[in-house]
């Protein structure tokens, strides 16, 4: 958010300078501003509709394609709702509503025929472009999460389910998870948002390690920063976990700070709450293990105690 504001300030400064030139002839300046703003809005509306439509189409294809293979109606309905929840989790509407606010302010100024319209329009083009860009990125992430959700419905003989949780404090363009002994990266997560990340994915059994982060100074640090790409390697920190086949593998919480620092904490109890809320059926279907600290007995203890209290209540 801070970076967006910073960039906005930069554009504001440029726009103010341009407006100052226009102000030599106020009437003509207002007209020109109106024309520019109207063009921007029209272009934005068109692009937005196109991006949205493309996303809807891909999402529907993905969901419908999967659900049509499920015969059990109840199961299909439940799963459909669950898949939708994955998409909602990305708060796609929020990006749209923020851009609509900007658009409506601009529209009001145009309607009022104010010579100050230029100021209202400052940076709008940039905001609109960024909205389209961010929406596109979020769509990709949402589709990826949908695909993961679909994938975990079936688990192969040498595969395990992996509960991934992260706290991200800083922009992450690409976060890499490698499999030990494998030459290729096991999985890369693109454009991970600041805040909490939670997902269950499917991986072949083995030992895995969070290895690198790629980020950009441009959107993380300061007003004057350039678009230099930064690459942090934390292989020496041994941020590893094990995946056992046929099990629900808890892997701790990856903590990443924007300055390149990363650590894993065993926060099984808080991750358990997320699993219980979002994927209770997986706790029924698969034995849960702590892949971060394989010797830890807390999970077994907790689940056994939980069953015991449930029996008491019944």
């Amino acid at each position: 958010m801070y970076q967006q504001k910073s960039l906005l300030r930069r554009h504001t400064a440029i726009a103010a300078f341009v407006c100052a030139l226009f102000m030599a002839d106020p009437v003509s300046a207002a007209t020109k501003c109106q024309r520019i703003a109207i063009k921007q809005i029209a272009k934005f509306d068109k692009q937005l509709a196109k991006v949205q439509a493309r996303f809807e189409e891909r999402r529907n294809r993905l969901v419908d394609g999967y659900l049509q293979h499920i015969d059990d109606t109840d199961r299909r309905d439940a799963l459909a709702a669950d898949l939708e929840a994955v998409v909602d989790g990305f708060e796609l509407d929020d990006v749209l509503s923020r851009s609509r606010e900007k658009k409506s302010v601009l529209t009001e100024f145009i309607a009022a025929d104010e010579p100050e319209a230029c100021k209202a329009g400052d940076g709008s083009a940039y905001i609109f472009d960024r909205t389209i860009e961010v929406l596109g990125v979020n769509h990709e992430t949402a589709l990826e999460a949908l695909q993961d959700r679909i994938d975990i419905e079936t688990v192969g003989p040498n595969e395990g389910l992996v509960v991934l949780a992260m706290y991200i404090d800083g922009r992450v363009m690409r976060l890499t998870l490698d499999k030990r002994g494998s030459m290729t990266g096991a999985r890369a997560f693109k454009n991970v948002k600041v805040g909490q990340f939670f997902r269950i994915i499917k991986l072949p059994a083995g030992e895995y390690q969070w290895t690198t982060v790629r980020t950009s100074e441009e959107l993380t640090r300061s007003y004057f920063a350039d678009r230099t790409l930064y690459y942090y390697d934390f292989r020496d920190r041994d941020l590893s976990f094990k995946v056992e086949p046929g099990k629900l593998n808890f892997t701790g919480v990856l903590m990443y700070s924007g300055s390149g620092y990363a650590d894993i904490k065993d926060r099984t109890s808080i991750v358990m709450r997320l699993v219980e809320n979002r994927y209770p059926e997986f706790l029924e279907r698969y034995p849960a293990v702590n892949g971060l600290v394989p010797g830890d007995k807390y999970l077994d203890f907790f689940l056994s105690e939980k069953r015991s209290w449930q029996e008491v209540q019944q």
Binding site: R237, D238, L239, G252, D263, I264, K265, D266, L292, V293, G295, D296, K297, Y298
Partner: peptide
Amino acid sequence: TDLPLLFSQSVYRR
């Protein structure tokens, strides 16, 4: 609250 959990911290693992 959980003595084995003390050892889970990455600083002790490393």
